[in-house]
Design a protein around this nucleic acid. Sequence first.
RNA 1: UCCCCAGUAGCUCAGUUGGCAGAGCGAGUGGCUGUUAACCACUAAGUCCGCGGUUCGAGUCCGUGCUGGGGAGCCA
Length: 461
Amino acid sequence: MKRTRVIEALNKDKKVERIMVKGWVRTKRDAKEFSFIELNDGSCLKNIQIIIDQNQDCREDLKLISTGAAVSIEGALVQSPGKGQKWEIHAARIELIGEADQNAYPLQKKRHSDEFLRTIAHLRPRTNKYGALFRIRSESAFKVHSYFREKGFFNLHTPIITGSDCEGAGELFRVTTLPAGKTKQNEKQNISENDFFGKEANLTVSGQLEAELFACALDRVYTFGPTFRAENSNTPRHAAEFWMIEPEMAFADLTDNMDLAEDLIKNMTIHVMENCKDDLELFGKFVDKKLMRDLEIIAEKEYVRLPYQKAVEILQSSNKKFEFPVAFGTDFQTEHERFLCENHFKKPVFVFDYPKSIKPFYMRLNDDNSTVGAMDLLVPRVGELIGGSRREERLNILEHRIKEAGMKKETYWWYLDIRRFGSTPHAGFGLGFERFLMMITGVSNIRDVIPFPRTPRHLEF
RNA sequence: UCCCCAGUAGCUCAGUUGGCAGAGCGAGUGGCUGUUAACCACUAAGUCCGCGGUUCGAGUCCGUGCUGGGGAGCCA
């Protein structure tokens, strides 16, 4: 008999004589005459209730069927006389597929702390919260691709292993096939020459430079893949491995860039609100009561667009006492970012035109000669969700900026070539996928929106 | 990496001026009921995070390491 997924069974509009479902037992309540099983198969948040008449032949395995066990149930889908659910299945045949030892199974039918569930990351998707979370993660990823496709962007697969030694985007993970332990004994050059690629290799910290090359050919591209940072940052908003979305557009300026970023965030948010209603409501109920209201603001309200200079003035004239003083030329601290989007504007804020001294070499120098066409999107709870810029397309200025930054232009010959042959204004940004998920679910630790998180000193599963 | 807080039963936690190790939930057993994180009774369950120190005596005080949480820096 063909299996029916629980989500389909619950959406039936009339009763079914015979149906088969398979899944994992969430709870079992025994009575003398009946047993009630709550069955979940991951297809949706809701369970389906199974009623087993203990006088029937199907009770054979019943004692071994307990929380966590995998079972197959055949029976009639009928309207439930009880409260709390529309449909239920009257079991005619039950099969225990895989039992779960109750003395050892760590998931109980009660709420567990996030910290505990993190230690059993292989089982946590079987809880309501994490099942919902990873369905939302999947649906969000789907929307990224469909959004860009609708807008005429091409998906670009940039390399995971890179040979460029520096992009100014943080510490790198070394990739090597040399035996462990011996690397330290050799000189750095010797290592690289004898290594797999014959030169130093690292895991990517960004696909931006490569995306720029392709934007200057396919016009509009985006990357969506894993990114690695070897920084020893121990915060609820950082991970060593995370996923980043990086669109890049040719013939575009900073306004186009902000327009795209705002439209993308709104579309992804609306998509999750429409397609993960039950799952999202769980977060609104148990994780953050303000969530649904905040999501409506993100989906509907126009985002603030604030020049860096104006942001400095707002912060300086505010009555709030900051630990770090604000002055032109300094980067904003977390407290400043939070004040702007959470207290002052109470919605997402783009800050743009930052001083060139605090931004990387590739950002386009403005006519004032002191600021660059950079933009950050600050959102409540998360802080910096997006960082992007218009890219410097003028060869002589870019060469000068590379020199200023203390880097060799030979390393970037291919990057500079693009400015030599048909150079054009272009712009793009990086969106942290996990930070988006934190924003949309209210989950406050990045470790809880990644199936198997990698952070300093943690490499389990 | 820096600052603050915590680590006690499977889970969540209490444990007084240093003096016999506790509760709720979960699990097991029995009962009861078309049950809804069911209910009632009983039972089992501990390297008090590790190491070292102070003391007649340490879950409790001191040092140190590890782990977790919050904040900061770096950033997405």
